[in-house]
Simulated assay, not measured.
Amino acid sequence: MRERLTDTLYGLGWSTVKQLPEPVAAALGRRIADLAWKRRGKGVLRLEANLARVLPDAGPGRLAELSRAGMRSYMRYWMESFRLPTWSEDRIRHGFEPDGLHHLEEALASGRGVVLALPHMGNYDLAGAWVPTRLGVPFTTVAERLKPESLYDRFVAYREGLGMEVLPHAGGSAFGILARRLRAGGLVCLVADRDLSSSGIEVKFFGEAAKMPAGPAMLAVSTGAALLPVTLWYDRSPVMRGRVHGPIEVPDTGTRAEKAALMTQQLADAFASGIAEHPQDWHMLQRLWLADLEPRANDESGTETP
């Protein structure tokens, strides 16, 4: 029943919100965000606990202010995502302004393949739609298997409609397909700031241990592709901003695992720099640091953000 309700709500979002005028949709998102923030549910409390690690000197008032802004940013992501299928190419092209774009353009021109790795910041779906629209470059990504299956199918159809090739995360075939795309000089985009699997790589993140996916670094090590961190944020305008950070190079020495570990730590450092600058746009409403994962009883993490 809960899975069917979730699928129905997402379906209503795509069928109803995209019909609203943009100012009305934005106001609705802020209203929903403020109501959720006032309820002080588990997601809001977890967001504040995560932000407390990002800004250890922030007092309760500052953390509450940031969490409210964070919920508004999170709901802006959803309102935009529900409406993205209706946006024109011109609207998408002018809806995102990244700094450091030359890092991506130079890496693509080299023909070696590129891995873009992002945290849960801003609207990575908008950034994804912008890439083929603005640069004319298709790319491949992965999607977590969601329940019910119909909800997963909705997200795959939505992202494919934005110009992405979407592979299921489950199973071992995704890595091989991604590697082939990179060896052919292609582009791969992966959200990579949280991994609770046995294959995750432990990093220091804001001074404490956390796990991040091994995939981005392992793909770069295995294929020679460029690994570029990307961070996203909103400013006061309707335009989303972002930064393509400089490439993380494959170390000259060490085993594949050792190289991947060093590169993933550098990736975590790049994410941390972007998150520290724009903490309200980091949509991490789940447990992340290893110290928060024990005991696992009553874990509020729930379903991953798709």
Rank of each mutant, 00 (worst) to 15 (best):
T133Y: 09
L118G: 00
A143C: 09
F175Y: 02
G113N: 02
P119K: 01
G172K: 14
P138F: 07
H169S: 08
Y124V: 14
L167A: 01
G171H: 05
R154M: 11
V114T: 09
G111E: 10
P138H: 00
V166M: 14
F139W: 06
L178R: 07
A107N: 11
A174T: 01
L126S: 00
H169R: 15
V156Y: 10
F175S: 09
W130I: 00
A157Q: 06
E105G: 03
K147W: 06
L151E: 00
L167M: 05
W130N: 11
V156D: 07
A179Y: 07
P119F: 03
R134M: 09
G163T: 02
A174D: 01
M121K: 01
G161M: 03
Y152K: 06
A129N: 08
E149I: 04
V114D: 04
R154W: 09
L162H: 07
P119N: 04
A170I: 09
G171M: 09
T140N: 09
Y152Q: 13
R134K: 00
V142Q: 11
I177A: 07
L162F: 12
Y158F: 15
V137M: 03
L126Q: 01
R134Y: 11
L146R: 10
A174R: 04
R112M: 06
R112G: 15
V114H: 04
M121D: 11
M164I: 04
L108I: 13
G128R: 00
A129K: 02
L108K: 00
L162V: 02
P132G: 05
L162K: 06
G176W: 14
R145S: 14
G136F: 12
G113Q: 10
R112K: 15
D153E: 15
V115F: 05
A117S: 11
H120A: 02
V114A: 03
A107C: 14
